[in-house]
Design a protein around this nucleic acid. Structure first.
Lengths: 97, 97
DNA sequence: TCTATATATCGGATAAATCCGATTTACACT
DNA sequence: AGTGTAAATCGGATTTATCCGATATATAGA
């Protein structure tokens, strides 16, 4: 749990938005072809208005920070929030900050 | 309370360190000439190893984000944590994140 | 008013982050 | 093997952040 890395990952509005969308996948990604319990497909996040490569980089930043977990199924990669890490981070921040 | 601004302000280890030092001024700034209940004098933070101008900029970033409050007394500027904003930020982050 | 000290701001160099289009890699299906 | 789709990576342009030394501003006191 790298606090500095997580804080850097959170310091961008689009990445915050992605995390926020993933709190309620049903509310934001109901149109997805695949069942939502697999996670949300990477391409779905291009709705933020950025290019595929940029979105991929943001997803990577969040994943590297431990905030998202990924699962490849076939040619797709599905993303979910890593609630354990998020909770641990919030707990530590509440103590440290 | 600008959450994005605060997250950006927290995304630097030196600024986190400054906030951390200010949690216990007695423990870290006992050598200060002025009474600590005024706050901690700006120059004290140069112990992070950065130049005066850079430290001033970091303090400004934290202040602009609302995380620090300042008080000028004579030629000195004293800094304190703004616990209200910090608590409000943590509360909102716990809800939003 | 002159000098000394503390802090803020300016100018500019370097480093890091952000973004895109193009390419590569990974996988599925003929 | 060959094609199609999804995602990651590369190369490079632009922007933003970080940092310093030098200068400007603010205050204190002789």
């Amino acid at each position: 749990m790298d606090k500095d890395k997580i804080l850097k990952a959170l310091a961008h509005p689009v990445r915050l938005e992605i995390l926020n969308w993933l709190k309620e996948p049903e509310a934001h990604f109901s149109g997805q072809e695949h069942p939502l319990d697999m996670g949300v497909c990477a391409s779905q996040f291009e709705r933020c208005g950025l290019s595929q490569s940029t979105v991929s980089a943001h997803l990577s930043t969040l994943t590297q920070a431990g905030l998202l977990s990924t699962r490849r199924i076939g040619q797709w990669v599905f993303y979910k929030r890593n609630e354990d890490t998020i909770a641990a981070f919030l707990k530590q921040l509440s103590q440290d900050l």
